[in-house]
Design a protein around this nucleic acid. Structure first.
Lengths: 373, 373
DNA sequence: CTGAAAGCGCTTACAG
DNA sequence: CTGAAAGCGCTTACAG
């Protein structure tokens, strides 16, 4: 049926646009146009072509099309795509996950695949190092139409990527970059976790956030304040809920000082909520050193269940976990939308999840010690 | 520097083979040849070209090359590739992993990426349904040079894929198919698990395998017999270590009958090793119903830690787990080798792992009951 | 060993 | 609205 009809039986040549044009009785130009909607063809022609496509089982060779359009597309005409999106994951994040036998990153990827494949997109997978500044191969080689980024790239690279390709960031947003993002809903997270602690009897609760200009700090603080306001209560220990000046190198000292301060506050908080698991885990380690028993002496919770430290955690941390399936699916949707319409305004999509009750929270230590309002 | 030199500042056209040829002072034909090794060029030319490539920062457009070569490659000349491999994972397997928060499949993928990216290969990810018989899009569209298959495809599809593309199967081999495979070393697995049980004091150990013509049955049986032979002992309860006629629909009855038989055997086995976690988990469920306590009354172990059932497992199963990193890395190596040399003989690579000691094994119940040789 | 030329499958000015 | 023709970047017979 196609060209020379295969005598060998090996690698049957797939039908080309030429086969379609022959069967449809139109020029290959017309076939191409029907398939790409560049010029609107007559309804009759369109039908003829589509029928022929069906009949010969034609699938355009996306590699050729993509390569061609990339170089020749004039303004106005939307360039054809590789029909592939890239999923960039940070090596550190993922190795940490593996160390802990965590599956979240494969869940995100799986959700991405489900959405992408339904729209006949392919998914390319790549790992990048934290702080990466080189353009990843799949971008340099124009292999993808868009990018899902679950990695902390260098500021320069971020800018290059966003400029060059539709890009959706997962679990991170950047004030200086107009790009889509899918992030955990930290307002929801802090609200749920505080509600849980409240119900256990806690009234004096501190929020441990940091001074980095990241959405999770702002949002959890906002949720924190809202929570207390909605209950008509003043913040009981506002200085302990101020963002802390902390970076990886000084985690130890800052947490140490913080807990010492906490313990000398009167009335002292009976629970601490840390914006990230990393901080919460450092706290558990320090509390163990201080011979404090969690949750008997202090309840500890975290707003982000994604752990990246090597610290052995005991007791298991009660925390909030965004739905990985929804994060992956939403990110993919957002990206495919943007590929279709690069002009649409950027979105930031908040995904909520659920609290995971583990062992690090319990009733407050001693009700008599508390200044109940 | 390239063509019209970009006035717009947007989307700087990347240098082409033409730029390289101009800088090197050779024809584009020669550049192409140096880059693809199709005809061996003179050392001087080669150097000139390579320098020019470096200088202009040329990267061949892999989409074009791949598409071209696919259709024109004559015999003898190795066709250029998309420089992409596909990773096919079975949806069921992966959903089961997610249900259990298992990370093994992301580990395999990660290892695949590490190997592939070092050789500048891309990785495409796709999920397929169990028993899938449609050619996956990434193959139909010629997006990949080779395939890693961690999925149970229909026999027909398997054949098509192996015929069409270099393919490496992960954790499965097929007698009727000359294809590379990376599988768990079941001889090693059974040897390690038996050694562990032996050391706990068990002498009467039964192996639960099935009659399906799969390598894991043959190998674990072989390892099992070797183990007893090497200790100069006869098999003590050979009928219980015969492959069992079992399929998913009758799991319940067969396991039930098996355990009843086991319990009436004299001297009765004090430990059972199941070739798969599925069987072992069914056993735990049945033993619970029979009011038998594991491991007090019977020790249970499994040779494959990858679980796909929904059965709540108690106590946690002691089992053998192949190294996912090594499986992924080896599979990728094997695939890239085969892409380079499609003629090389097929390999079956056995990957060992380690025993994971959990709670389902303990000392044998009552030493006086045992007929120690 | 090297180059000029044809051509891969497809898209897109250009001219009806 | 449609087609003949040029051309995308590259590879590969073909002819030196």
């Amino acid at each position: 049926m196609t060209r020379e009809s295969n005598r060998s039986g090996i690698a049957p040549p797939s039908p080309g646009i030429r086969d379609v044009s022959r069967v449809a009785g139109v020029s290959i130009t017309t076939v191409s146009r029907v398939l790409n909607n560049s010029v609107i063809p007559s309804e009759a022609t369109r039908r003829k072509v589509l029928e022929a496509v069906e009949k010969v089982g034609y699938r355009p060779d996306p590699l050729f099309s993509a390569a061609l359009r990339r170089h020749r597309s004039g303004r106005g005409v939307e360039p054809v795509k590789t029909k592939t999106i890239g999923f960039l994951i940070m090596r550190g994040l993922q190795e940490a996950a593996h160390r802990r036998h965590e599956d979240y990153y494969s869940r995100v990827l799986s959700a991405v695949w489900n959405v992408a494949s339904k729209q006949r997109y392919h998914v390319m997978f790549a790992e990048v190092d934290a702080g990466e500044s080189r353009v990843p191969d799949l971008v340099a080689e124009n292999r993808v139409d868009g990018l899902l980024v679950e990695a902390e790239l260098s500021a320069a690279l971020r800018k290059v990527l966003v400029h060059r390709l539709p890009t959706v960031f997962i679990d991170r947003t950047y004030a200086d970059l107009a790009a889509d993002a899918v992030v955990t809903d930290y307002v929801q997270a802090v609200t749920d976790v505080l509600g849980y602690l409240w119900q256990l009897g806690h009234r004096q609760i501190a929020l441990f956030s940091d001074t980095v200009d990241r959405f999770y700090n702002h949002e959890s603080l906002e949720g924190f304040h809202r929570f207390y306001e909605s209950r008509g209560l003043p913040l009981l220990c506002p200085e302990l809920s101020q963002p802390q000046d902390i970076h990886p190198e000084i985690n130890d000292q800052v947490i140490d000082a913080y807990l010492t301060r906490l313990w000398s506050t009167k009335p002292r908080p009976t629970a601490v909520v840390a914006v990230s698991n990393v901080y919460a885990e450092f706290m558990l380690a320090h509390l163990a050193k201080m011979r404090r028993v969690v949750p008997r002496d202090l309840s500890v919770a975290s707003l982000n269940d994604l752990s990246v430290t090597d610290i052995p955690v005991h007791p298991a941390l009660t925390s909030y976990r965004a739905s990985m399936d929804r994060i992956g699916a939403s990110a993919a949707e957002l990206l495919l939308q943007r590929i279709r319409d690069p002009q649409r305004p950027t979105f930031r999509l908040l995904v909520s999840g659920r609290m995971i009750e583990r062992a690090s929270c319990g009733p407050p230590p001693d009700t008599s010690e508390l200044d109940l309002p």
